[in-house]
Design a protein around this nucleic acid. Structure first.
Lengths: 104, 104
DNA sequence: TTAGACTTGTCGTTATTTGACAAAAATAGT
DNA sequence: ACTATTTTTGTCAAATAACGACAAGTCTAA
């Protein structure tokens, strides 16, 4: 089952038997803020992704994928983007790639 | 061909024979900033979408679709999100919808 | 009820975005 | 080429949004 990135963090934290305070300390943030992150009230700062991966011995690429799919999934949800519109968005992303190649 | 939202604005502006200054005035913004928007350096403020639609007599829903697909397409591009990962993001958006229904 | 874990609210700081102005560059008309 | 107009670029202050930190609250288990 696909989950939010906050739930993903919580899953790994519980699996390792860490408290919010313990993990927050390792990540250099407040336990209150980590709580909000796990509950989807705040975003996890991208800068901490590698630290997170190291703590739980996870592949950094996998963690990053988990992160960006969460971010984009959130935007799809918030904008009520339908599957058809998402196809269009995908084409536009492709178009931006062609723009990059033209300009250089 | 799918384009950026900035190019979409420029297309309609040119079609109607308006200068940046003229359209910017109608949209209550600076011509320099509108120039940046059309060139993709800045974002068009979502609050102005309805005004934009009225000026060019466009369906507000269509304009909004054009806008959100641009926004999401931009994020897909910037994060280098592959089609496979986009499918995952879509599932996560769906998951968020189930969350909403559960909570209420 | 006490302790530990987690959540919620708030607020000052930091970072990002926007609006505005000036000035340069490009374009078109004469 | 000269001039007027349009468009682009650079910069900065103001507005906005995101973040870190602290305090106080709730919840759970011994």
């Amino acid at each position: 089952m696909k989950t939010t990135f906050g739930e993903y963090i919580r899953f790994h934290r519980n699996k390792k038997g860490l408290t919010l305070t313990q993990l927050a300390a390792e990540l250099n943030l407040d336990s209150a803020n980590l709580s909000k992150i796990e509950n989807g009230i705040r975003d996890f700062d991208e800068k901490r992704l590698s630290k997170f991966a190291k703590i739980f011995n996870l592949d950094i690429e996998k963690v990053r994928d988990e992160y960006i799919t969460d971010q984009i999934g959130k935007q799809i949800y918030e904008t009520n983007c339908t599957p058809q519109l998402l196809r269009v968005a995908e084409e536009k992303a492709e178009y931006r790639r062609t723009l990059r190649n033209k300009t250089v």
